[in-house]
Amino acid sequence: MGPAAAGGPTAVPSRPADLLRVQGLRKHFPVGGGWGRPRVVVKAVEDVSFAVPRGHIVGLVGESGSGKTTVGRAILRLIEPTAGRVEFDGTDVAKLGAAALRRFRQRMQIIFQDPYSSLNPRMRVDEIIAEALTAQAPMPRAERRDRTERLLLRVGLRPEQMRRYPHEFSGGQRQRIGIARALAVEPDFIVADEAVSALDVSVQAQVLNLLQDLREDLGLTMLFIGHDLAVVEYLCDEIVVMYLGRVMEIGPSEELCAAPSHPYTRALLSAAPIPDPAAPRSRIVLKGDIPSPVEVPSGCVFRTRCPHSVAACATVVPPLVEVAPGRFSACIREDIR
């Protein structure tokens, strides 16, 4: 078992400015079972702790299957976390009852990866926005219309397009509609789940700039989930690196990307394309595939693919320790930091 068994979840020191504080978050999915097959547990998220300061954008990166999307969903309680605290502005979201949670939802919103399935094909844009505006309380027609117009302008769409259906828009435009829907309830915090991954590079840039503007103008706090390190580094103040459901490294974007401390972060960075064909490359190629989350390796989950693993890696789950001010890494090999 992880550090939880050894005495409480790993704690990232809290800062007074934190809007969101995630502590020891776990999500286990029971799968299989029945007809004589054993019931197994997928540990999608295991002891994840990090914090998001008010007004900052924190990036959550990792390859597919690392559990980053599950973390986002669990923070919003779109799925129920198995264990852990999700402290939002002093309230433990994980403990809210149904009615309180419904009211609380207005403070946290989500932007989805797929601009197609995230909008109901049978609702017009104005209906989609109106649903957000009236989700919790009715709003007069005129005000609804006025606010819908302003929201569409805000995200770079023309208000006269609001009587159209989603299929009449391009992927980038649809993503803007999704952003407008999230902004409609004036949230303090937004989870952007691979919000630009499905878009073309040129459109990605437009949407990223929109998110930047929104942060500056509205003081939004954001958890940006992604796998493209270049995008995450550009947008985020701080990066949390996940692998197989666990946090490997946390640090300020620039420092983490310039001098990664954890071997996994190094491998991830070396895999990112550099837009200069002449640049020297020393790609760290990892062995094998990401292990099954059903049978996670003992000790450090990354040890089976780590070029620096030693015998001790199999016995201890490396705790997330502060290796430099504001930088945390979960690796026992102090010699390679």
Partner: peptide, 9 residues
């Protein structure tokens, strides 16, 4: 889109 509606309450 159903998840979005749930997230909006």
């Amino acid at each position: 889109f159903v998840e979005a509606a749930r997230a909006l309450g």
